[in-house]
Each structure stands twice: as C-alpha cells, then as structure tokens.
C-alpha cells in the first residue's frame, strides 16, 4: 500500500518534470557537465561571479515575462535599453543630476517606450513582432543621435553604490533582482491584473467577451516590460560603469531564448517566473562555463542556439496531440474481427 503511494508520487513527479521541467533538467545537466569539465566551476568565487553577473539579465527576464505571457513579443527591448542607458549617462555626466532623480526619469522613459509599442500593437491591431521590429529601429536611431555615437564611462559613486555596496556578502542589486522576481511572481499569480494577462495570452477574444479590457491590459504589459527593462539597464550601468548606443541590443535575444527554454509559450497564456529564472541561469552558465573552459566567447552563440533548438524540439514533441484515452493494442484487436 505504502509502496504504491510512493510509486505514484514518484511517477507524478516524473510526469511533472516531463511536462514542465525541461529547463531544470537542462540546468542540472549543464551544472554536472561543467563541474566535471572544470573543477573551478563549482568554487565559491565562480558561483559569486555567476550570480552577480546575472542580476540585470534576471531583471530583464521578468520584463519579457509580462509581454510574452500576454501573447505578445517585444524585440525592441534591446534598443530600449540603449536609449535608457544613454539617457541616464547623459543626465549624470553632463547635468550632474543626482541618481535618485535619474532613476525615476529613466523608468518613465522605459514606460513611455513600452506604452508606445503597446498602443500601436493593440489599437492598430498589428502583430507585436512587426511593430517592435520597427520601433526597435526608431529607438536605435534615437540612441545614436543622442550620444553622437560616443560612449560614456565613469558614473558617479552614488549611482554605482547599487553594485558596490554589499549586504551579507552580496551586492545590493542581487536583492533588487530577488525583489523584482518576487513582485513579478506575486503580480502574475495572485492579482487580478496577472489573471487578465494570462487570460488575454490564452485567448484574447474570449478574454474580451468575458469582460476583460483586453487592449488596455495588452498595452499595460508592454509598458511594464519597458519599465522593468529600464531598471535592468540602470543595474547594468551601475555594474559595467560604461554605456553607449551599442550597449543593450542583444539582450532581447538572450531573454527570449531564456523564456522559451524556461517554458513560457510563444503563443502566450502560459509560463512561470521560476522557470524563467532557471532559463536565464542556463544561458548564464553556458557563457560562464565556456569562458572557464577557454572555448572563446563566440562559440557560445552556437551552443546557445543549439540548446534553444533542443528545447523547442522537446516541447513540440511532448505537446503533440495524443489520444485522451490510450487503448492497448491487445484490447483493441478483438473488436475488429
């Protein structure tokens, strides 16, 4: 009796891993692989690096969660980061504004850019993919014009304190990232708004007919994505201490890949924040592990691409339509006669 129960819970855990857990399996395999390959991988020093380098990507990943779960996609976030970073740098270096003014200004800039994407996509009923490819170019142009292709470095100490100050041995921005992950989880799982986001991602017409203001929710998702990416940019700037119009673009692909590996459906309506974080860790571990193994930075792209293909392939395989009731062959035979 007891054994039966254990067996059942084991098989249901196996079923869960099979359905939802692709990303955790990949994560575990990668950790074991790199640990065997290079003993320094699992040292405290390296884990510390891995975590501190991942913070801004994790924050950015939370941003992409909103837009993807609502059934959209945002390819302009990389160039949004460039704009936000340049605005922050120019404000601090050329006008000497304190960091506590720069922060809200940048977040508002991010919200406005996201809002623009959302309004165009929802009101004109265009595909977010196309809209954000176009606005991406617009933002890129703005970033280059604003900076005249210069790069900025040497941010004020007050601004960099986010990364430089340590609490319990970890930089402050690690706690900021945790806070944002927790907030995103709460909003998506426990609030009215989060439910609306999942609903429009699952079936926009049904959501609208059920009384959800679908266009508004969609626009808000884009705006929130823009706002969170602004925060990610500020964290990145505090860490790297320099920016230019080319800093930021590329992040959108990392985030999208992480989201897909992490189980957020491209069609929307599905996804969880923990999977997303795991997806980002997969991407970061590949980068970190390959660096340690001296395999060169460029090969990373190839490996990341292959991992993405494997993840998509596995998802497609397990989501193939299956008969609801499996008929055993022996049982089905006699009926035919």
């Amino acid at each position: 009796m007891n054994e039966k129960n254990i067996g059942r819970s084991l098989s249901s855990a196996g079923g869960y891993l099979y359905q939802e857990g692709t990303v955790y399996i990949i994560l575990a395999v990668l950790v074991i692989f790199f640990a065997i390959l290079n003993p320094t991988f699992l040292t405290g020093r390296n884990i510390y690096n891995l975590i501190t380098q991942s913070t801004y990507i994790i924050i950015a990943g939370m941003g992409i969660c909103f837009v993807m779960i609502s059934g959209g996609i945002d390819l302009s976030v990389g160039n949004q980061m460039a704009v936000c970073g340049c605005v922050a740098a120019i404000l601090m270096l050329e006008t000497d504004l304190p960091f506590w003014v720069v922060w809200p200004v940048c977040i508002v800039v991010g919200l406005v850019m996201g809002c623009l994407n959302g309004l165009i996509a929802s009101k004109l009923k265009l595909f977010p993919l196309v809209v954000t490819i176009a606005t991406s170019e617009v933002f890129k142009g703005i970033a280059y014009t604003m900076t005249s292709s210069k790069s900025y470095s040497g941010m004020p100490d007050g601004f960099r304190a986010l990364y430089k100050t340590k609490l319990l041995g970890l930089p402050l921005d690690v706690y900021l990232a945790l806070l944002i992950v927790a907030a995103t989880w709460l909003v998506l799982n426990k609030t009215h708004f989060g439910r609306d986001v999942l609903a429009i991602g699952g079936n926009k017409e049904c959501a609208r007919l059920s009384g959800i203001k679908a266009d508004l929710v969609q626009t808000l998702c884009f705006a929130i994505t823009g706002g969170i990416f602004a925060i990610a940019t500020l964290d990145m700037l505090a860490q790297q201490n320099m920016t230019s119009a080319t800093t930021g673009p590329g992040t959108e692909i990392t985030c999208l890949t992480a989201a897909i590996i992490g189980g957020i459906s491209m069609k929307g309506g599905k996804g969880n924040v923990v999977g997303m974080v795991a997806g980002i860790l997969v991407m970061q571990i590949i980068a970190n592990g390959m660096q340690l193994a001296h395999w060169g930075t460029y090969a990373q792209y190839t490996v990341k691409g292959i991992i993405l293909l494997l993840a998509i392939g596995f998802d497609a395989l397990k989501n193939r339509p299956r008969p609801m009731v499996r008929v055993r062959k022996e049982a089905a035979q006699p009926q035919k006669k």
Partner: peptide, 26 residues
C-alpha cells in the same frame, strides 16, 4: 467561450473577478 489551455478554475473566474479580489489580489 473559453481558454482551452487553462484550468476549469481559471476559466470560471474570468467574468467574476470582482467577487474574488480585494485590492486587486485574488
């Protein structure tokens, strides 16, 4: 009519969110 790839519980809540939430929290 419904969001096929979500739960019965989720679908039934869609039009009645006012009854289920307090300060926006479900």
């Amino acid at each position: 009519g419904c969001i096929l790839f979500n739960t019965v519980r989720f679908n039934i809540s869609l039009s009645a969110m006012k009854l289920l939430t307090k300060f926006g929290v479900i």
